[in-house]
Simulated assay, not measured.
Amino acid sequence: MKKNVILVLALIMLTIFFTGCAGGGSNDIVVVSREDGSGTRGAFIELFGIEEKDANGNKIDHTTDEATVVNSTSIVMTTVAGNKNSIGYISLGSLNDTVKAVKIDGTEPTVENIKNNAYKVFRPFNIATKEDISELAQDFISFILSSDGQKVVEDNGYIAASEEGPYSGTKPSGKIVVEGSSSVTPVMEKLKEAYLKLNTNAEIEIQSSDSTTGMNSAMEGTCDIGMASRELKESELKSLKPTVIAMDGLAVIVNKENPVSNLTSDQIKGIFKGEITSWNEVAE
């Protein structure tokens, strides 16, 4: 009997040992970040001070090297939903009930809290074009900025950025390609759907990638309209004209089983820089 107890204890210790080797401590934070070129990443590291200037004035991204890097909003949510120790960040407009958004500095991430300036973590959704664009591209942009288009923006959980009147375009025929940010893509799909009900002569192809790819494609002429979930860089502004079509909050998300419901800005910064590595350090 004594030998059996010792054997069971030994097996338990071995299981704990190998589990720890495979996945780290049971409360180790698993950081999930977007890829380089993502506008969401660019906005996030700027807003939380994870990007800092070095002695030469160059901006350095201090996101921890231990982060799991993924290339779309949907994969961030899937990854966080599948790991109880994970944390990531996404567009507020893309948030669903598969994950939990934490309060930041005690404030819940909502459209209303962004509008009343209580929630500080938000960024613009931009589209960008060259100076000379097709009649269809211009008409689609006119729709987006009209009260009809901005209603689509607000109906999908974003904040309107234009106060222009109802759409009264020319409804030209043709095809345009819109490419870029995976954060902007969901609302752009809704805008496309609404516009095509008004202009059945048009064809719009939307290609989801990231903000930098969208801007490069617009500059190279491989798409008509680029999408960016950040401000345009100086190098991009030399060739492109930006237009803000919506404002969007950033939500910091955790697994639904995670008991943590509030984090300070400094804690988020520490987590994504790799300075805070255990949930025990931020337990409420």
Rank of each mutant, 00 (worst) to 15 (best):
T63I: 13
A283Y: 05
N83G: 05
S72K: 06
I141V: 03
E231W: 10
S134N: 06
E257L: 08
V8K: 08
K273L: 01
E35D: 06
S168E: 07
D148A: 01
D61H: 11
E189L: 09
E203S: 13
T78F: 08
I268R: 05
K2T: 15
I90P: 07
A218D: 04
S147N: 03
V32I: 04
S26H: 15
P172I: 08
V32P: 07
E275Q: 07
N4K: 09
D36G: 09
F272P: 11
K175V: 11
I50M: 07
N56F: 14
E189H: 09
L7W: 08
N85C: 13
E154W: 01
F17Q: 10
G93H: 01
I225C: 15
E163S: 12
N58W: 03
G165C: 02
M188E: 14
E284D: 07
M188L: 10
T98E: 00
L240A: 10
V31G: 02
K115N: 01
A160E: 11
T170D: 11
I12N: 13
A118I: 04
P242L: 05
K120S: 00
L240G: 09
L136N: 12
A202K: 11
S239E: 09
E112T: 15
T64W: 08
C223R: 06
I29P: 12
G20F: 11
K115I: 14
E284H: 05
T185W: 12
H62R: 03
V254P: 15
G25Y: 13
I253N: 02
G57H: 05
A22D: 14
K53F: 00
D97K: 06
E66T: 14
L92I: 02
F122D: 12
F140K: 15
M188V: 10
N56E: 14
K59D: 00
G149M: 03
I50T: 02
I16V: 14
G57L: 09
G49K: 00
V153R: 02
G25R: 13
F122T: 04
S217K: 09
S181Q: 02
G169H: 04
T68W: 07
E231P: 13
T200W: 01
L9S: 11
D132P: 00
G25V: 13
E51L: 07
N126L: 10
I87H: 05
K233H: 03
T40Y: 11
D139K: 12
P124A: 00
A128V: 02
N199S: 09
V30R: 08
T19Q: 10
K241W: 10
N262E: 05
I29Y: 08
D224P: 04
I141G: 06
L250C: 11
E163R: 15
G25E: 15
G249Y: 14
T63Y: 01
N199P: 09
K53N: 03
K53Y: 03
A246D: 04
A246P: 09
G37V: 00
Y195R: 13
